[in-house]
């Protein structure tokens, strides 16, 4: 009984972690390039809306994904225009994007579909549905490993597997390509990169575009993978949890995935524990699990679990001349 529960918790851990992984990787690209990205939440919400609308209109999840990514990249470019070209305050720009996302998706959703800011429910063909791996059904009843295979490994949509591919891919781009080296350098010492004759502006723009693509995947996952349509404010703070995970992972790709899995697990565990009482303690308030990712991140920032050192030039607009 216990192990069965654990397997189902792990299954929902995966489902809840995917948007976090995409979003935190998005933040990894921008923040490593020295651009703070509070607007992850907003980009996620915008792309969820765009994906749901496009999938509803065309009936194709792939066009939904394309639309989600396009809109998310556009929003990233606005963030880039404000914070890179205009050297505006990056945090203010991010806050503005979050406000815009929350408001505009609801206004347009209501104006177009008149369902209280929702988009109409999508048919199964317009969504990314679960992929069942071979023999999953047969192995479901064959002990622990079989159940693990059927519930945790198999039975997710394609974006899930894409997220786990995106992790090593991000690592490879950041640590094994020339672009990645320059991107990391521009987050630490843009002056040096500029001296080497490489455009700081263009590098940072490319980093925000990468982030836009990844946020587009996470929003699409929310709207047409995990659920069957857009719901008002459906990102529900996930962008901020992803930001916490990014810091918790000290701005490195593989730890980002592990941190997202941990925070996803906390979420899944909280859902599982709801209404259940623990012997000797009684019912554990669900709010403890909700607050735990943030508490853990703050404890980390306090320096009790190693030191989280952010990119040196983070949040500082680059000025070439005085």
């Amino acid at each position: 009984m216990e192990s069965l529960d654990l397997i189902s918790i792990l299954g929902s851990t995966i489902r809840l972690s995917i948007p976090l992984i995409f979003t935190a990787l998005a933040g990894l690209f921008t923040e490593r390039a020295g651009v703070f990205d509070i607007g992850l939440e907003g980009k996620m919400l915008f792309s969820a809306f765009a994906a749901a609308v496009a999938a509803f209109m065309t009936g194709s999840p792939w066009l939904g994904l394309l639309s989600g990514i396009t809109v998310s990249v556009l929003i990233s470019l606005i963030h880039g225009f404000a914070s890179i070209t205009n050297r505006g305050n990056q945090i203010v720009s991010g806050v503005a994007i979050n406000f815009l996302a929350s408001g505009l998706t609801a206004v347009l959703g209501q104006a177009w579909f008149s369902q209280g800011g929702r988009t109409p429910p999508l048919a199964a063909t317009a969504r990314f549905t679960e992929i069942v791996f071979p023999y999953a059904a047969e192995l479901r009843d064959t002990g622990l490993i079989g159940r693990f295979y059927a519930n945790v490994i198999s039975g997710h949509n394609i974006l899930t597997y894409l997220a786990f591919i995106a992790v090593p891919a991000s690592w490879w781009v950041l640590y094994r390509t020339r672009f990645g080296l320059r991107l990391r350098a521009v987050g630490e010492n843009p002056g040096a990169v500029d001296t080497a004759g490489i455009s700081v502006t263009w590098l940072r723009y490319r980093a925000t575009i990468c982030a836009g693509i990844l946020c587009g995947c996470s929003g699409t996952y929310l709207a047409i993978g995990q659920s069957a349509g857009f719901v008002k404010d459906m990102s529900a703070g996930k962008g901020y949890i992803a930001l916490a995970a990014l810091i918790f992972a000290k701005w490195r790709p593989v730890p980002v995935m592990l941190a997202c899995l941990l925070f996803g697990f906390l979420d899944a565990f909280a859902n599982f524990m709801q209404g259940k009482s623990v012997p000797g303690i009684g019912e554990v308030p669900v709010q403890i699990f909700q607050a735990l990712p943030y508490v853990l991140t703050c404890v980390l920032l306090a320096g009790f679990i190693g030191v989280a050192r952010p990119p040196k030039a983070g949040g500082v607009p680059y000025v070439k001349e005085r």
Partner: peptide
């Protein structure tokens, strides 16, 4: 009724964007 309360959030977002992040536009 077509303009929900969320329109205020849009305006706020635009004000923050233009008066804040793009103040030197």
């Amino acid at each position: 009724p077509k303009i929900t309360r969320d329109m205020i959030v849009v305006i706020q977002g635009l004000v923050i964007l233009f008066a804040g992040a793009l103040e030197y536009l």
